[in-house]
């Protein structure tokens, strides 16, 4: 992949990557930094991109890894600066989520915040799966393909995630998600 192609990818996918970074990190400054970092990594590792996946999938993987690292780093530093949806005014939160997180359904807005809160309780692979499923809105088949796990494994991990999330977050309403899993 040439330098110019990375520029083209930026024009095409930057807004998608920014939205998902914002959804995961919950902070505009962090999301902007993450966006830059994702494309810088793409710039550096463009020669290694083998096109066995689509460019958007490739960028999404980079973004996921980076955002999960940032979240882990925050936890290590006991750094809780996330602009949680609870801290925003109701209308503001809806605008933020609807327009920038790209979460069209009411339940998804809570999902993004909940996922962020409980992510650190899980191993890295489960974190990835939860992000793809709840934040990116992938189907189970798409998540299985993206994360490289079988469907039964995927369902088990998602169920574990939901059970733990339910026990940790009182306000969590699993109806929408649970319905899809069953």
């Amino acid at each position: 992949m040439e330098l110019q192609e990375v520029g083209d990818l930026y024009d095409k996918y930057a807004h998608i990557i920014y939205a998902r970074c914002l959804g995961l990190l919950g902070d505009r400054v962090d999301a902007e930094e993450a966006l830059q970092e994702v494309f810088l990594r793409a710039l550096k590792s463009r020669k290694g991109f083998r096109r066995d996946s689509s460019p958007m999938t490739w960028l999404t993987r980079i973004a996921t890894n980076h955002c999960l690292n940032v979240l882990r780093s925050r936890k290590r530093k006991s750094y809780d600066r996330h602009v949680s949806l609870e801290k925003l005014e109701d209308g503001e939160a809806k605008t933020l989520d609807s327009h920038l997180l790209g979460l069209p359904f009411g339940s998804c807005m809570e999902n993004a915040a909940t996922v962020r809160k409980v992510l650190s309780l899980f191993p890295r692979k489960t974190q990835e799966i939860a992000v793809y499923y709840f934040v990116d809105g992938m189907s189970q088949a798409e998540v299985a393909l993206m994360a490289g796990v079988s469907l039964p494994t995927l369902r088990k991990r998602l169920n574990d995630f939901i059970e733990t999330a339910r026990s940790h977050v009182e306000s969590y309403s699993p109806n929408g998600v649970q319905g899809e899993l069953e």
Binding site: K12, Y13, I16, S54, P55, M56, T57, G102, P104, Y132, D136, G137, M138, S139, E142
Partner: peptide, 14 residues
């Protein structure tokens, strides 16, 4: 379709 699939189709990735 999943939101991911719609996004991919819309951006031309699919």
């Amino acid at each position: 379709p999943s939101r991911w699939a719609i996004t991919r189709a819309w951006t031309g990735d699919l």
